[in-house]
Amino acid sequence: MEELREEIISFPRVGEMAPSFEAVTTHGTLRLEDFKGSWLVLFSHPADFTPVCTTEFIAFSQAYPEFQKRGAELLGLSVDSVSSHIAWARNIQEKTGVKVPFPIIADLSKEVSIKYGMIHPGESKTETIRCVFIIDPDQVIRAILYYPLTTGRNISEILRIIDALQTTDKYGVATPANWQPGEKVIVPAPTTVEGAEERLKEGYECVDWYLCKKSV
């Protein structure tokens, strides 16, 4: 137990390489490395056949084409078995008409959950909470979200984060609060006195030298 607790508190962090794994999924045995070259949204849910998780899986499945447009794959995870995942996905399709198109890890051993810090004993000692890891094509963790058991995730926000990260990578800019694709982005603030003096002459839309925006 002491060993488990030690590993649980060792969370991966933004900017670090995503921990490698090989896991049994509803689409066969998959490795993290199989997703190299694509964006990957690795997300955990507490348990199959539970209400909030079901609404999330419907929402993730319906948004799957939007993830694909962004070159992103989805990979679910819980500590349930493959048979449970398959039965749940079939039940969702039968009851709602929505097909779950992405693989789900059956992490019965909790090996992946522990590596990714998905079990938060304050919420549940046995289930994974609602974690989201956004991993880039080089397999670096670019964003992490944690939601409690009782709060279903906002899928639009996950898509928005991918849009923001891809915009940052393409144009070398940052994105402001509540940014949506098509809106102006933030030019990185100058880091020298000379740069600060020049910035206001560079034709950007500026509040001051440290907050300037442009269209991309």
């Binding site: 689409h27 066969g28 045995t29 998959l30 490795r31 490395e33 199989d34 997703f35 070259g37 694509s38 794959e73």
Partner: peptide, 12 residues
Amino acid sequence: LPLFRVRSGLRD
């Protein structure tokens, strides 16, 4: 097929 499916499928 998605690339991840191809990579895992080729292993199998």
